[in-house]
Structure formats: structure tokens, C-alpha cells
């Protein structure tokens, strides 16, 4: 066991881990932050996406020890302290961008990374950026719509609410 220390959602945390402990497992099992989900074992579904030093990464494909000293942001840190949803979360609710909710944490975190680098993405920008986030429920329609809406674009012309 080795001690690892990092900042998660602005709070300093540390814990003992093995070499093989994944960041996703550190968050879920050591810190009890179960909002980050694991949906595959080949680094494709994206349910586990968090930000490490501001960059979106798949936390199931990064060793916890690689995040030593890093600043990690997860779905649990996205809403305001009073619980109010941020613009992306709110757009997902407003536009029914989630159904079972399992892929949602990764979708929200990927959307946040996208909007940081591309504040007004086109439909195809959004679809391409979500290549590493699989949703089985929504057919992506309302996810794409929600992300475009979160960027301040008028999505009222997009078919069917």
C-alpha cells in the first residue's frame, strides 16, 4: 500500500492504495464517491470520465497513483454548494438528456470539457466530441440538444422536445 494524496472537488484527500488501484476505484471505494460509474473495461463507454488538472480522462483507465498531487473534478462537484445545478446539468434536465442516468456523470463531465474548449459547438462538433461516451437510452438526440442549449444556442428548431 502507498499513500496517495490529491484534491477532489477542491478538497484535499488521501488514502492508501495499491499500485493497481484505478482512479475510479479510489473515488468509488476509498472516498465513497459513487457518482463516477464504470460501464466497461476497455476504456470506451466513458461513464467514468472525470477531470484531472482540468482535462477529461477516463478514470477507469488511469492509476490512482498517477493522480498524486493532481486536482480532480467529479460529477459530485458540479452543482453549486446550495445544490443548484450548473448550466450543463440544468440543460440535461430541461431537455431530457438522460434516462437511466448511468452514463450521465460521464456525459456531463465530457460536455463540460467540450464547452471549455469550444464554447459554441455545432451539432457535429458535439457528436464527434462524444465519441468516447456511450449512452444506450437516449439515442443521443436530447444529449446533443442539451449540450448545445447549455452553450447558449437556441435549440428550439431541433425536432421534437
Amino acid at each position: 500500500m502507498t499513500q496517495v494524496s490529491m484534491t477532489v472537488n477542491g478538497k484535499a484527500v488521501s488514502g492508501d492504495v495499491e499500485g493497481r488501484t484505478l482512479l475510479s476505484s479510489f473515488l468509488r471505494d476509498k472516498l465513497g464517491m459513487t457518482g463516477t460509474h464504470v460501464g466497461c473495461d476497455t476504456s470506451q463507454c466513458g461513464a467514468c470520465v472525470v477531470h484531472v488538472d482540468g482535462a477529461a480522462v477516463k478514470s477507469c483507465t488511469m492509476l490512482a497513483l498517477e493522480a498524486e498531487g493532481a486536482s480532480v473534478d467529479t460529477i459530485e462537484g458540479q452543482a453549486a454548494a446550495d445544490g443548484s445545478l450548473n448550466a450543463i446539468q440544468q440543460a440535461f434536465q430541461d431537455h431530457h438528456g438522460l434516462q437511466c442516468g448511468f452514463c450521465t456523470p460521464g456525459m456531463v463531465m465530457s460536455a463540460a470539457a467540450l464547452l471549455k474548449e469550444n464554447p459554441k459547438p455545432s451539432e457535429s462538433d458535439v457528436r464527434e466530441y462524444l465519441e468516447g461516451n456511450i449512452c444506450r437510452c437516449t439515442g443521443y438526440h436530447n444529449i446533443v440538444k442539451a449540450i448545445m442549449a447549455a452553450s447558449g444556442q437556441d435549440v428550439s428548431a431541433i425536432a421534437a422536445e
Binding site: K58, M62, E131, G132
Partner: peptide, 9 residues
């Protein structure tokens, strides 16, 4: 290559 999160690692 891969997807944005993969490209970051």
C-alpha cells in the same frame, strides 16, 4: 485518435 479523454492520456 480514440476520443478526447483517451487523447488526454
Amino acid at each position: 485518435i480514440g476520443d478526447p479523454a483517451v487523447r488526454n492520456r
